[in-house]
Design a protein around this nucleic acid. Structure first.
Lengths: 182, 182
DNA sequence: TGCCTTTATGCAACAAGTTGCAATTAAAGA
DNA sequence: TCTTTAATTGCAACTTGTTGCATAAAGGCA
C-alpha cells in the first residue's frame, strides 16, 4: 500500500491542502497511483497521527482548509520505504477475459465493442502524455529530478502505445476470423 | 468485476471443481485475472444461485468435491457480458511512486533495490510465457480459438519485455545520475 | 442581514480481495 | 483398525478502495 508514501512525496514537492493534493494527483502521481479525496483525507489523518506531517489552518480560505507539510520523521520514513522492494502489481484486465471468453464461445460474441472503446481511451491518454512531454520535457536541459520524472512519463507513453497496438492487432485478427457480415 | 465471467469462461472450456479451477487459474486466466480459492468458492456459490452453473457431487474423490458445469443461461450471460465495455483498469505501481520519491528526495535513496527485484521477476515471467508459446503455439496450424489465446499470450510477452526494458533504462539512468560510489 | 453558492473536509455504508484457519472426507500407512 | 496425511470446501476477520451524502466556513448578492 503506497498511498501514504505517494502523499509524502507529493507534499515534499509542494506543501498544500488535501483538496489541492487530490487535484494534483489527478494530473501527476495519480497516473500510476490513483486516489480519491476520501482516501486522501483519511490517510492525511493517519500521517499526522504518526508524526510524519503537520498541518496548520489556513486563514482567509473557504471551508476548514489546512495546509500539510512533511516533517523530518516523514522524510526519513519515505527514504526507508524507497529502499524497500515490492512484487510487481498483478494485472487485472477484463478485456483479456473477454477475448478468452470470445474464444470459448466461438466468434461473433462482440468483443470488438470493448476493443474499440479501449482504443479510443488509450489514444486520448497518449495525447495527454504527449502534451505533457511537449510542455515540460522538450527543448531544454533537464535537472536530475526532471530526468527521473521524464523517465516515468516515458513509461506511460510506451504503455499507451503498446495498448493501442494491441487493440489494433486484436481488431485485425477479429476481422480475419469473422469475414464480412458475421 | 469480471470474476464470475472469468469462471464461466473457464468452466465452458472445461467443467471441473473449485479446486481444479483455482489451479487452472494459476496458469491461464489467472495471468490477467488472479483469484484465490476463497474468492472462487464464494463466486461459484453465487453462480449456482443465479442458475448459471450447476454442480454435482463427484464420487470417489477426497473431501466434498463437486463438479461445476455451465448451464445455457450462463452461456447467455457470458455472451451478453462479452459485448459490454469497460474502462481500462487504472495503473497502480509502487515502483513508479518510488522513482518519483527518489526524484523528490534527491538521488541516493535506494530505488535500485526495487528496480533490480522487478527486473528479476519480469525475466522469470517472460521465460514462463516463452515456454508456453513454444509448447502450445509453435510449429503448427492454429484454430480460431487458439489464435485468440495466442494473441492474449503475446500481450503478456510484450508487456514483460517492456517492463524489462524500462527497468534496464531506469537503472542506467540512476547509474548516470549517481556516479560511482554514491 | 439573510440566503445561496462554492470550496473544503469528513462520515458511513458498501464492494472486492486477502489471509488465516477450521471442517469434511477419503486414501495411505502403522 | 486406528491414526495420519492430503485434498477439498468453507467461514470470518481484515484491508483497501469506492460511492453517496453530510457538514463547515467563506464569498457573492439581493
Amino acid at each position: 500500500m503506497s498511498l501514504p508514501h505517494a502523499l509524502l512525496t507529493s507534499l515534499l514537492e509542494q506543501p498544500c491542502s488535501g483538496m489541492d493534493l487530490a487535484r494534483r494527483f489527478g494530473r501527476s502521481i495519480g497516473f500510476f497511483w490513483p486516489a480519491t479525496h476520501q482516501q486522501i483525507y483519511k490517510e492525511l489523518g493517519k500521517l499526522e497521527a504518526a508524526g510524519w506531517v503537520r498541518s496548520s489552518a489556513e486563514e482567509g480560505a473557504r471551508g476548514r482548509k489546512r495546509c500539510y507539510e512533511v516533517l523530518p520523521a516523514g522524510e526519513q520514513e519515505l527514504k526507508r520505504w524507497v529502499a524497500e522492494t515490492d512484487e510487481p502489481p498483478p494485472l487485472r484486465d477484463a478485456m483479456m477475459v473477454r477475448l478468452r471468453a470470445e474464444a470459448a464461445l466461438g466468434t461473433g460474441a462482440g468483443v470488438e465493442n470493448d476493443l474499440l472503446h479501449r482504443l479510443a481511451r488509450h489514444r486520448t491518454q497518449l495525447a495527454l502524455y504527449e502534451d505533457i512531454e511537449q510542455r515540460d520535457f522538450t527543448g531544454r536541459e533537464l535537472s536530475a529530478a526532471e530526468q527521473l520524472q521524464y523517465l516515468i512519463l516515458q513509461s506511460g507513453l510506451t504503455t499507451e502505445r503498446e495498448h493501442i497496438r494491441f487493440c489494433e492487432k486484436a481488431l485485425a485478427l477479429m476481422e480475419a476470423l469473422e469475414p464480412a457480415g458475421v
